[in-house]
Design a protein around this nucleic acid. Structure first.
Length: 964
RNA sequence: GCCGGUGUGGCGAAAUGGCAGACGCACAGGACUUAAAAUCCUGGGACUAUAAAAAGUCGUGCGGGUUCAAGUCCCGCCACCGGCACCA
């Protein structure tokens, strides 16, 4: 293909306009009170200059791309898909009259640069900067209208200074349940028994939004670091796919769970796709239910039913503090308290803190063996071996609080320590997991919920016949479960309770919803349980054992009692830089690499620095805020600036449009929302949500329909495409492939198609002879002089300043309408096809009026800005007009009156089948249409000899003749 | 298993319940050319029929339904993609 003739001299045009834009700073966005140069195209368009207050600026539009990690591999064609879409919209919004903020930057902390450093000793900053330079070159070559004056990298010292500053805010805050928001830890009130400074400190430290935990974590030996739950997929690391094991370690955690409810509820206020919201909802995993107390029966009572009966009655009726204190209780969480009468055993997780106490001596050896087996299992083993349930009887028993029944307490790893209370009541008749476990270990199954008659599918046994006696069936169902559960699954859906009564309360006959309410109220009244909400969401594991990340502004000190405790560095000490190292590996003792720098590590006062660093997500949690005020040295973002760019703009609040890949559906997007909400609570930002509208671009597959990857050898490099077809064709093709959100395969032939389209546009505007002359001159010219050769190309003589014909105006205005509406709906592919339709028609015109050709270039400009600018400039020059910057020229409006036809074609159907088309006046009445339809030529064979029974006319749409 | 999404020509796709396949790719034929490339013009869902045309029948994953009329709405399936997955 490279041997073929260029469709048009994009190689000269594109670099020319990219330089022009850069010199003009054409896409610089102005903050309130910025000094706006009078000759800047934005100032010219809006008639502004000098310092302009927020109220005098045009309305803002903040349109954001997910910033990339600058990898060594460079850009692939997936990156520019979203970037092109946002660039088109940014350019469109500028033309419509908004003050557009459209920035770009780098998520530049990350593992690959560090791994390279471990291997070669080259500082990660050097690698990172080289990669950023390459990414910048590639992105700039696509002609995106970013405001590069706001470029940031998370690895910039001036940037991560503020990342550390935000961490200090998290550290120094707690979530006050009374006010339902984050506040300074100064507002914590200490309980009366908290008297010493040590006790107060411990109390406060346990409340902070950033806290230290000793919990078991996901340790990846290969990567030498811990990972967040979200970074572990099927027991393997998301990065690299290495095995991950559970290991208790001291780690920093962020209390995102405090925001579970807000993160969930506020999804309703933002414009994200249903699937994305659903992913976040699932991840947060809210479930309503009840916590119920099961008292553990002291071993002395076992085998003495009367004594147990008495104990139960005491608990129920005159529970004393004394009794309460002397008994252990297992707190369970259930979403189905209505099935409490069907609870036939308890299960606690192997890590449950009561496990050793509940276990009886005769069972201890077996229990210990099992517990060790279960807790050392890696997550990988847990998921892979999940098929078969395992567990062991503890030897202990508990009382079912609703009926005093004695139930066994089992230990099994199908109950997770980290969810709910780490213990469950098992209702095998109505829960698949419990059912499976009960069958394996021969535990009792007691049905207490039956299906609703009518949609019932399980009450009937073979031979029950067509008209079963439901009373009989119900009795058999509840009293003889063995008849049913041998052949069916447990009944896990909602239904009607039965066999669910004690002396005080009966759920029999109640629906599941009623029964839940009733039993929960009873439990609460009796002090045996309470309504509870649980979340799957866990706190965010925030520390990594790495070098190339933000160091924590934290030091460790030793108290008088020898206990070490942490303390924050003052804000004035920020930024805290990482030390210089020769060797980036973890220490021999397994300490993070920062521990190698002894000078850095140990402070003169004897305190020791925290050696963990923050995860890569930290920097991306707030970069969108920094863009609004990238150079602010006093604050992470200025109040007035935040108010202008992030505050409510009509309906939207926050970033108006955010485009990126689905891979960040629950990680980045949840973390960023969380930080934003904390900053909002603390009064630093003006909106509760960061991103109003969010769109995920679809994946671009290789030409073979497979995911692009180096190993498959199907990666398309944008650089190669650009050399061949130019940036405008590349942009156009990325958008023409199909809907932005869809997954779609790359097809180089498709690029040629849009490239040809641009060629037709070009030839519509320029004189062919002059272009031939240009091409000949170019073959002999020095490369440095080629730019000037463009002047040899002349405008086509058919373009004149004359009145347009109605047909020409119609073609233009139909195009304006379609492109405008499609841009508003982000339907780029159909907008492009509308422009193709226009060009196909314009190719047939003898004359090309300026008044039609100019607006068309404006429509084309957001998609193919280089060629549009070039032709725009030529049009103006040729007709002696001053060329205003196309980027800021007001968007054309369509005139609906020009689109009205005098005569229209209407399809004629006979009995709903299309038969012919009739031409009628646009304002023809129904009688006229009916008459025309009845004589439509091609409809005659279907009308012959039949009576017309009914005529359906949809004005301007169709006519349907119904014959008998 | 659960949740979300998608199924339309050889391919990417388009269609407020109203002429299915716009636009583009690939393909075929033609014009220009010594020739090719590029460009321009024309054609095209399948089937039946025909010398050719006119024409007809069928057709949007499958099976039902609503409607004068269904790719579009409803019910029940199937397949593929993405996410979650012992979360009680």
């Amino acid at each position: 293909m490279s041997s073929s003739r260029r469709q048009y001299p994009f190689h000269l045009i594109e670099s020319k306009w990219q330089q022009t834009w850069e010199q003009q700073q054409a896409f610089r966005a102005f903050n309130p009170n910025d000094e706006i140069p009078a000759n800047h195209p934005f100032a010219v368009r809006h008639n502004l200059s000098g310092k302009v207050a927020a109220t005098q600026l045009p309305p803002k539009f903040y349109i954001l791309d997910m910033f990339p990690y600058p990898s060594g591999a460079g850009l692939h064609v997936g990156h520019p898909e979203g970037y092109t879409a946002t660039d088109i919209l940014a350019r469109y919004r500028r033309a419509v009259g908004y003050n557009v903020l459209h920035p770009m930057g780098w998520d530049s902390f990350g593992l690959p640069a560090e791994q390279y450093a471990v291997k070669t000793g080259q500082h990660p900053r050097v690698t990172t900067e080289a990669n950023i330079a390459n990414f910048t070159r590639q992105i700039k070559s696509l002609g995106f209208s970013y405001d590069w004056s706001r470029e940031i990298a998370t690895t910039d010292v001036e940037y991560f200074k503020w990342t550390q500053w935000i961490f200090l805010k998290l550290y120094n805050s707690w979530f006050n349940p009374e006010t339902n928001k984050a506040e300074s830890v100064e507002t914590i009130e200490f309980p009366s028994d908290c008297t010493t400074e040590d006790a107060k400190r411990a109390y406060r430290d346990a409340k902070r939004l950033a806290y230290v935990s000793e919990a078991p974590v996901n340790w990846c030996p290969e990567l030498g670091t811990v990972l967040a739950n979200e970074e572990v997929i099927d027991g393997k690391s998301e990065v690299g796919g290495f095995p991950v094991i559970r290991k208790p370690m001291r780690q920093w955690m962020l209390r995102i769970t405090a925001y579970a409810e807000k993160l969930l509820a506020d999804l309703d206020t933002i414009d994200w796709s249903d699937s994305l919201k659903e992913m976040q909802r699932n991840w947060i995993g809210r479930s309503e239910g009840a916590e119920v107390d099961f008292y553990v029966i002291p071993s002395g009572y076992i085998g003495k039913p009367e004594a147990i009966r008495t104990l139960y009655e005491q608990l129920l009726n005159n529970r004393s503090t004394l009794l309460e204190d002397s008994l252990q209780k297992v707190k369970v969480f259930t979403t189905r308290p209505d099935t409490l009468f069907g609870a036939t055993y308890l299960v606690i997780s192997p890590e449950h803190k009561l496990a050793p106490q509940i276990t009886t001596n005769d069972r201890r050896i077996e229990v210990t063996r099992y517990t060790e087996f279960a807790t050392t299992k890696s997550d990988l083993e847990r998921t892979e071996l999940a098929k078969e349930k395992t567990g062991v009887f503890s030897g202990g028993y508990a009382l079912n609080p609703v009926n005093g029944e004695v139930v066994q307490i089992w230990i099994a790893d199908y109950v997770l320590a980290s969810y709910g209370t780490g213990a469950i009541m098992a209702v095998p008749a109505h829960d698949e997991r419990d059912f499976e476990f009960a069958r394996k270990f021969k535990l009792p199954i007691k049905p207490v919920v039956r299906p609703v008659y009518g949609d019932n599918f399980m009450l009937e046994l073979p031979g029950d016949g067509p008209n079963p006696n439901y009373d009989e069936l119900e009795e058999r169902y509840f009293l003889h479960p063995e008849l049913y559960y041998g052949q069916t699954l447990p009944f896990v859906m909602q239904g009607i309770n039965g066999r669910s009564r004690n002396l005080e309360i009966s759920l029999d006959g109640n629906s599941t919803a009623e029964a839940k309410k009733k039993i929960t109220a009873w439990l609460e009244a009796r002090g045996l349980g309470k309504k509870t909400i649980n979340y799957k969401l866990r706190d965010w594991l925030f520390s990594r054992q790495r070098y190339w990340g933000e160091p924590f502004p934290i030091v460790w000190k030793k108290g008088p009692d020898g206990q070490s405790y942490h303390e924050a560095l003052p804000e004035s000490s920020l930024p805290l830089l990482p030390p210089t190292l020769e060797d980036y590996k973890p220490t021999a003792g397994g300490e993070p690499p920062l521990a190698r720098a002894k000078d850095w590590l140990n402070l003169p006062d004897g305190s020791v620095r925290e050696t963990n660093t923050m995860p890569q997500w930290a920097g991306s949690c707030w970069y969108y805020l920094r863009y609004t005020d990238a150079k602010n040295a006093q604050a992470f973002v200025g109040k007035e600036v935040d108010n202008y760019w992030m505050a409510s703009n009509g309906k939207a609040a926050g970033v108006d449009l955010y485009v990126g890949g689905t891979e960040h559906a629950v990680l980045h997007l949840l973390y960023a929302r969380f930080w934003h909400k904390v900053l909002f609570d603390l009064g630093y930002v003006s909106t509760p949500e960061p991103f109003y509208k969010l769109v995920n671009q679809g994946l671009i597959l290789g030409e073979d329909g497979q995911k692009m990857s180096k190993s498959r050898g199907n990666v398309v490099n944008p650089d190669d495409v650009l050399v061949e077809y130019g940036a405008d064709a590349f942009r156009l093709y990325e958008m023409f492939m199909g809907p932005l959100q869809d997954t779609k395969p790359w097809n180089t032939k498709g690029v040629e198609g849009v490239y040809r389209f641009l060629g037709r546009v070009w030839r519509l505007f320029v004189d062919e002879k002059s272009e031939t002359a240009f091409e000949q001159a170019e073959t002999t010219a020095e490369p440095s002089q080629r730019g000037e050769l463009l002047d040899l190309i002349l405008l086509d003589g058919g373009i004149t300043d004359q009145h347009a014909t109605p047909a020409q105006l119609k073609a233009l205005h139909a195009c304006i309408k379609k492109v405008t509406e499609d841009l508003d709906g982000m339907r780029f592919n159909t907008a492009i096809s509308a422009m193709m339709v226009f060009i196909n028609e314009a190719m047939t015109w003898q004359t090309k009026p300026l008044s039609v050709m100019k607006p068309f270039l404006q429509l084309l400009a957001p998609f193919a800005p280089h060629v549009a600018e070039e032709l725009w400039a030529r049009l103006h020059a040729t007709f002696g007009q001053v060329a205003t910057s196309l980027a800021y020229a007001p968007w054309p409006k369509y005139d609906a009156a020009l689109l009205v036809e005098s005569e229209i074609e209407i399809p004629v159907q006979v009995n709903g089948k299309f038969r012919d088309v009739i031409k009628v006046a646009v304002d023809a009445d129904n009688a006229t249409i009916e008459a025309a339809a009845k004589v439509a030529e091609k409809a005659q064979p279907f009308l012959a000899g039949k009576a017309i029974k009914k005529v359906i006319i949809v004005p301007k749409k169709m006519v349907n003749l119904i014959v008998g």
